[in-house]
Design a protein around this nucleic acid. Structure first.
Ligand SMILES: NC(=O)c1ccc[n+]([C@@H]2O[C@H](COP(=O)([O-])OP(=O)(O)OC[C@H]3O[C@@H](n4cnc5c(N)ncnc54)[C@H](O)[C@@H]3O)[C@@H](O)[C@H]2O)c1
Ligand SMILES: NC(=O)c1ccc[n+]([C@@H]2O[C@H](COP(=O)([O-])OP(=O)(O)OC[C@H]3O[C@@H](n4cnc5c(N)ncnc54)[C@H](O)[C@@H]3O)[C@@H](O)[C@H]2O)c1
Lengths: 214, 214
DNA sequence: TCATGTTTGTGAAATTAATAACAGAATCCT
DNA sequence: AGGATTCTGTTATTAATTTCACAAACATGA
């Protein structure tokens, strides 16, 4: 049983990711046990927030003691469904796609890019980080062959919908879209947008109007 | 006057960025006027949400008509403070840093990377996308010389705090941290975290537990 | 064993955000 | 011109999320 409650806020999922990051840091420092209070401080959140977030998934702490760091990392990972590897397809091997392919942390965290696809004939056949770039047309075959579950779109924005359509047709389960374009997907496909500019905009807003807001 | 109300929700700022994206798409398609209803549909939000978000900043629409697309883009940009250019410093010119440097969209959107800094002597002096990589030690001088306001951290996580310290010491106003590490900054410095893994985790969670959640 | 101190898990309260409802303003059509 | 229609801006309502507060659980030391 991984989920105790029915609906889990999106914000909770985002925070769980932060908790893992901070807990891993504690682990590296040699801390074995941590209280919600101390974890909260390191994550800049309220301590009840942490306890409530965890309560959606189960009881992971020991009263009077706190949380065993390694155990909590394991529990959160299981709760999020990242206690196993996920096979990913990368569509669009340009600047950003290459940076992602070269990023070791993806496989370390369990997201393994097993297929790199592009439609540019000059790029097809090229090998990046031990991965051969193949034609987008091969997506359906490769998705089945390699059990790819998550599609990562790093094409130009005007091609994002097409890339999504390929992925959906190939039977992918979720899509992470790095292109700054809204795309339409059937509702059984999980879709996440990553837009770097959002945070640049937010930074500009807060710096500019630092006196009135913030 | 850019801000009508005192406090503006973080979520509103994020949505405004989406509105700009979708409005720009409408503009390219030749649409001159759009209703909150239609914009809402394209952004997958509620139409009152849009009207309310905009109301924080002013009255941009015409009753019985809707919003003039170009005017609304201009108004939102002014509201966010992105009606002018922002000079940025990039610290850490590795895989991700290079992808960002090569990304034309940054300067098109008004975020101009004017300084690229690294501490690796083999990288210093190298020219990437017309930009010479200089030593991190030169940050204070360059921040003043080039009026850099936003610092972008793309160093490994264990170096993120040091990079932040350099930037803060140099007089930067805001920091966008792409490294998966929490960093401490004085409260007058605006800080944004960008963590790609958050959305991979969210995707894994929703796909894995598609039956119970979502 | 029992008192004391700590810290979790959780229901209740407070805060915040999202949605609905509608009056007022503009257009369009007859 | 005036009535019907459209669509914004704003207030009211509802829903969701966060914070508070405290009982229950465990640890420690006398
Ligand atoms: N580079 C960055 O730092 C950065 C930052 C933020 C967002 N983005 C976004 O990420 C996306 C990619 O950026 P980039 O800089 O890597 O662009 P890029 O032009 O370097 O790469 C795009 C790649 O997609 C391929 N492609 C185009 N259509 C395709 C299709 N239908 N199927 C498969 N492949 C296809 C192209 O051949 C090319 O290799 C863009 O949408 C961009 O806006 C990039
Ligand atoms: N590459 C990706 O796709 C990707 C994706 C998500 C997150 N990230 C994160 O972004 C960061 C950079 O990733 P990368 O793949 O580019 O790593 P990288 O190792 O290729 O680049 C890091 C660069 O930072 C420089 N550096 C180290 N310490 C520095 C300091 N104190 N001052 C200035 N420069 C310094 C290094 O010399 C190197 O050039 C990492 O924290 C990584 O976790 C990268």
């Amino acid at each position: 049983m991984a989920v105790k409650s029915e609906h889990i806020p999106k914000a909770t999922i985002a925070r769980l990711a932060t908790y893992i990051q901070v807990l891993s840091e504690f682990k590296r420092e040699g801390t074995d046990v941590v209280s919600s209070e101390r974890l909260a401080e390191a994550c800049s959140v309220n301590s009840s927030q942490i306890r409530k977030d965890l309560a959606y998934f189960g009881e992971f702490g020991v009263r009077g003691v706190g949380y065993y760091v390694q155990d909590l990392i394991t529990s959160i990972k299981r709760s999020l469904g990242i206690d196993r590897a996920w096979n990913c397809a990368l569509v669009g091997v340009g600047n950003l796609g290459r940076a992602l392919l070269r990023h070791r942390e993806f496989s370390r965290k369990g997201f393994i890019i097993r297929g790199a696809f592009d439609c540019d004939p000059y790029k097809i056949g090229e090998v990046v980080e031990g991965m051969e770039i193949v034609c987008s047309r091969q997506l359906p075959a490769k998705v089945k062959e390699l059990s790819l579950e998550i599609g990562v779109i790093t094409t130009p924005p005007e091609r994002a919908q097409r890339a999504a359509n390929y992925l959906i047709g190939a039977g992918i389960k979720g899509i992470i879209n790095f292109a700054p374009a809204r795309i339409a997907v059937p509702k059984h496909i999980h879709l996440e947008y990553v837009d770097f500019f959002h945070c640049f905009y937010a930074a500009a807003f807060h710096i500019r109007f630092a006196d009135t807001n913030d």
